[in-house]
């Protein structure tokens, strides 16, 4: 299967409120020669409904995989939740014939069938495995050596380890490597792999925001100029909610939160406007001046 052509699986959170991630990801992928084909039709990956019905999650995920199989294309996602779910279900159904038959009974009602012939990968997995680090590095024309940033992977691109099988959940390296490819320094900090809290929003907002605040505190302590995320939900927790957290806990962070493709895009020489920087909530003007000034 062609390694430079993918079916783009947007998920729900990105079209709902995280446009900057999509805009910047499409820009950098275009520059790296990755061709994107839109999904023929869409349904949620299934992850949000796993807590209420595992069966429904399996059907929703399998349905997307079956649609991708019809197109004969591997899936790329920007959301780790979608990537994790599609990957997990793909593996489960491939390995468990009884489960596959059961889910296929449901899909058959709509004339679909899961066969297990495509892969699903998150953006950073595509960058590191298919595009390749060298090509990413070669695309950098304006190294961001003036920046010291902190990474945040999010949970579902890494866990549960046995089903996801990507990177090391206790010490993930891929995002760091990709950040360093832009010339920026990636700082270590306490509890780097800790959850952002997003899944608890709607059930208990206070706990969710306390978790996000904890991480912002750690990042502030190491003087990171920005936080780099690869998940729409994590981004909402730290960028959209940063002001809310500041008010709630009487703190001042002012830490810009960029989507990784925005960082790479800057290093590729793209303008902040092209990368939808104006969609971000936290003020990025100081950061962009530092990038412009080169010091």
């Amino acid at each position: 299967m062609a390694k430079s052509k993918y079916l783009m699986f947007l998920g729900c959170a990105i079209p709902y409120r995280v446009a900057a991630f999509e805009v910047s990801a499409r820009k950098i992928l275009g520059k790296l020669g990755v061709e994107l084909v839109e999904m023929p039709e869409f349904n949620c990956c299934g992850l949000p409904l796993d807590p209420v019905s595992h069966e429904m999650m399996l059907i929703l995920a399998a349905r997307n995989l079956a649609l991708a199989e019809q197109k004969g294309l591997n899936i790329i996602t920007l959301c780790p939740g979608c990537a994790g779910t599609l990957k997990k279900v793909n593996k489960m159904l491939k390995e468990d014939k009884a489960l596959r038959d059961e889910i296929n009974c449901h899909l058959k009602e709509a004339g679909l069938e899961f066969k297990g012939t495509v892969d699903a990968k998150h953006l950073i997995q595509v960058l590191i495995e298919d595009v390749g680090l060298e090509k990413v590095k070669d695309s950098v024309v304006k190294p961001l050596t003036m920046l010291k940033v902190a990474e945040h992977n999010g949970c579902h691109i890494l866990r549960p380890k046995e089903l996801i099988g990507f990177d090391d959940p206790e010490d993930p390296k891929t995002l760091k490597t990709l950040i360093e490819a832009t010339g920026a320094t990636c700082l270590d900090y306490m509890d780097e792999t800790e959850c952002c809290g997003a899944p608890s929003v709607g059930v208990n907002d206070k706990i969710a925001l306390q978790l996000a605040r904890d991480k912002l505190n750690h990042i502030k302590t190491v003087d990171a100029q920005a936080m780099i995320t690869i998940c729409p939900f994590c981004h909402i927790m730290y960028d959209t909610n940063e002001l809310r957290i500041e008010k709630m806990f009487n703190e001042a962070y002012g830490i810009p939160v960029l989507h990784y493709p925005q960082l790479l895009g800057l290093a590729m020489g793209m303008k902040p406007e092209e990368l939808a920087f104006n969609e971000l909530r936290v003020d990025v003007s100081k950061l962009l001046k530092q990038v412009e000034g080169g010091a």
Partner: peptide, 30 residues
């Protein structure tokens, strides 16, 4: 948001297929 996609130069969002989806989920208890 859908209109804004155009302004941002993004392709139209893929549409759902409620009828087909409903068929596959017909027997889900929840």
């Amino acid at each position: 948001r859908l209109k804004k996609r155009e302004t941002l130069g993004l392709p139209p969002l893929p549409k759902g297929n409620p009828e087909s989806l409903g068929k596959t989920l017909r027997t889900v208890h929840f």
